[in-house]
């Protein structure tokens, strides 16, 4: 014990107070701004996807930037293959495919993005609440999710559209209703891992309400997960819309979407008029691909540990 007694406490405090000055003068790391953004930008596929989508949205809403025609305008008297005036050719009524594609894109994108917003909202709220209040609400959410998984999404969507008509608003609501669970599960997992962090304990100790904790602590710390899943949900929504419309249960004339165009051109899908079918198909493919790339790019940007897939 001699060692202990010899140690003079004054010594310790003297050193300590000297050290306090060091601590404060010690340079703190320069604020690293936009870390995630930089990582995202370094991901080429994701960056290109963003550019592509921005261009697509601009073109869909201002088609006159690249086409001289208006919607449903008869530009030729017969079906034309792609040429210099009609870049993607014309359909059998002589309408310019590119123009139709862009106008149809408006509806497709509107549905997709609306679904993205609504289902992200429902999903992150439900996920955060389920994760935070773990027991009862959580198992309830899990059971509901199980139920929705039992019947394929396409079947639920087709059935519901039969009832609620072909308004795209109905479509948005129904697709949202069947696709929020993905977000909810991810956010729930995130919240479960956040919940045991000490800052949540600190907030509880400080008498903060559960609502405050959910909105101020849990959801802001789940942004990365929410962003990732919303991009993914949008991609899924586009595919679902196009499939159900292609089967003839989705968007109905006079409204058009890419899925609806595919339905219209179904008869030309094999043979020399394949180009008619190909344009909306490729548009769908690339848009879905872009959202998938963005989703993965966001995931990698927010979580540098998850290796590039």
């Amino acid at each position: 014990m001699s060692g202990l007694e010899e140690t003079k406490e004054n010594d310790v405090s003297k050193q300590a107070s000297k050290h306090i000055k060091e601590t404060i003068v010690e340079s703190i790391p320069p604020p690293i701004k936009f870390r995630a953004l930089k990582r995202f930008y370094a991901n080429r596929a994701a960056t290109i996807s963003v550019v592509f989508l921005v261009a697509l949205i601009v073109l869909c809403y201002f088609p006159n930037l690249i086409t001289d025609f208006s919607q449903n305008e008869q530009t030729a008297f017969k079906r034309l293959p792609p040429n210099s005036t009609n870049w993607l050719g014309t359909d059998l009524l002589g309408r310019d495919i590119l123009t139709e594609l862009l106008y149809a894109g408006q509806i497709t994108l509107r549905i997709a993005i609306a679904v993205g917003i609504i289902s992200t909202f429902i999903g992150s709220l439900a996920g955060a609440i389920a994760g935070y209040f773990h027991k009862i609400i959580d198992s309830l959410l899990m059971r509901v999710t199980d139920l929705f998984l039992v019947v394929p999404q396409l079947v639920i969507l087709a059935l519901a559209l039969k009832k609620f008509g072909d308004e795209y608003i109905a479509m948005v609501l129904i697709i949202s209703l069947i696709s929020w669970m993905f977000t909810a599960r991810l956010v729930r997992a995130q919240v479960l891992s956040l919940k045991s962090r000490e800052f949540i304990d600190a907030a509880k100790m400080n008498g903060r309400s559960s609502i405050y904790i959910v909105f101020r602590h849990l959801i802001p710390n789940s942004w990365s997960v929410i962003a990732v899943s919303s991009a993914f949900t949008i991609a899924g929504a586009i595919l679902l819309e196009s499939t159900v419309s292609f089967l003839g249960f989705g968007v109905q004339a006079p409204l058009t979407s890419w899925g609806r165009m595919l339905y219209d051109f179904k008869g030309f899908a094999i043979g020399q008029y394949f180009y008619l079918f190909l344009s909306p198909a490729l548009a769908t493919f690339f848009t879905v691909l872009a959202f998938n790339f963005i989703s993965d790019g966001l995931r990698d940007a927010f979580d540098p540990r998850s290796e590039q897939s």
Binding site: L239, S242, L262, A269, I270, G271, A281, L289, N292, S309
Partner: peptide, 26 residues
């Protein structure tokens, strides 16, 4: 494999079907 999985996830299956049909039957 990664490229293929991106393709498979993003492609509308029915469109993929018609591409195949055109390719292998025509």
């Amino acid at each position: 494999v990664t490229a293929f999985s991106y393709f498979g996830i993003a492609v509308p299956t029915f469109a993929f079907a018609y591409v195949l049909m055109n390719m292998f039957a025509l």
